[in-house]
Simulated scan of single mutants.
Amino acid sequence: MDDASLLRLRRAALLLLVGAVLTLGGAFYFQWVLGYVPCKLCLTERLPYYAAIPLALAGLVLPPRLTRLALGLAALGLLYGAGLSVYHAGAEWSFWPGPSDCGGGAGANPAAIGDFLNALQTTRVADCSTAAWRLLGISLAGWNALVAFALAAISGTAALKP
């Protein structure tokens, strides 16, 4: 493998790493700083990024063949995430129903009935079929679909390009 091909693989791994970290950072900012409660689908949409970060880190140091494998696995996971985000955004637009068990932010199980009643009064539950925030008419789920697809394209193209 020539130096240009190795550099292309490392650059793709670095872009994947930066993109995944920034995306998760944005999600945590909305949750912890702005106070948006993530729904069940929002939390599930983060999983491909959690997997992409160590795969991207591995891609920065592994031999080229294993870097391609790491980038390919990340691309597959991110394509799953993009599909899940499209489903989520479609549920927000009422194109189809969202999951019937969707809610989030519940926290720990209280031990006593009094604690349970207090928890019910303070717990905020997010509905998967309601967009909490939009930019240019696109919800967070919609933006996540675009980001996940772009990162999947970058890592998948690098993994498959000879």
Results as ranks from 00 to 15, higher is better:
residue 162 P to E: 15
residue 81 G to V: 08
residue 38 P to Q: 02
residue 38 P to F: 01
residue 126 A to Q: 09
residue 32 W to I: 10
residue 101 D to I: 02
residue 21 V to D: 00
residue 150 A to W: 13
residue 39 C to L: 03
residue 27 A to G: 06
residue 129 S to L: 00
residue 145 A to W: 06
residue 6 L to F: 04
residue 51 A to I: 11
residue 78 L to C: 10
residue 5 S to G: 13
residue 110 P to K: 13
residue 148 A to E: 08
residue 99 P to C: 03
residue 15 L to E: 06
residue 72 G to K: 06
residue 79 L to H: 03
residue 102 C to S: 08
residue 116 F to D: 14
residue 69 L to S: 12
residue 90 G to N: 07
residue 68 R to C: 06
residue 128 C to D: 00
residue 17 L to I: 08
residue 30 F to T: 11
residue 64 P to E: 10
residue 15 L to Y: 11
residue 107 G to W: 10
residue 59 G to P: 02
residue 29 Y to Q: 02
residue 55 L to E: 00
residue 54 P to Y: 10
residue 144 N to E: 13
residue 161 K to P: 00
residue 116 F to R: 14
residue 2 D to V: 02
residue 3 D to V: 09
residue 67 T to H: 03
residue 22 L to H: 07
residue 59 G to Q: 04
residue 88 H to A: 15
residue 120 L to T: 13
residue 26 G to T: 06
residue 21 V to G: 00
residue 139 S to H: 07
residue 97 P to R: 11
residue 153 A to I: 06
residue 14 L to R: 11
residue 79 L to R: 06
residue 102 C to N: 00
residue 100 S to M: 08
residue 74 A to Q: 05
residue 134 R to L: 13
residue 23 T to W: 12
residue 73 L to E: 08
residue 35 G to M: 09
residue 26 G to N: 08
residue 16 L to I: 10
residue 101 D to S: 03
residue 101 D to T: 04
residue 157 T to W: 15
residue 93 W to D: 09
residue 107 G to E: 09
residue 75 A to K: 07
residue 67 T to I: 06
residue 102 C to V: 01
residue 140 L to C: 03
residue 20 A to V: 06
residue 53 I to E: 04
residue 97 P to T: 05
residue 44 T to D: 07
residue 47 L to I: 15
residue 37 V to L: 01
residue 146 L to Q: 08
residue 97 P to Y: 04
residue 149 F to R: 12
residue 55 L to Q: 01
residue 152 A to G: 11
residue 109 N to E: 14
residue 14 L to V: 07
residue 56 A to D: 09
residue 144 N to I: 01
residue 91 A to T: 00
residue 104 G to F: 00
residue 117 L to C: 09
residue 11 R to I: 12
residue 25 G to Y: 05
residue 112 A to D: 14
residue 9 L to H: 02
residue 95 F to G: 00
residue 162 P to H: 12
residue 105 G to S: 03
residue 30 F to P: 00
residue 10 R to P: 01
residue 139 S to N: 09
residue 50 Y to A: 13
residue 2 D to R: 04
residue 13 A to T: 08
residue 134 R to I: 09
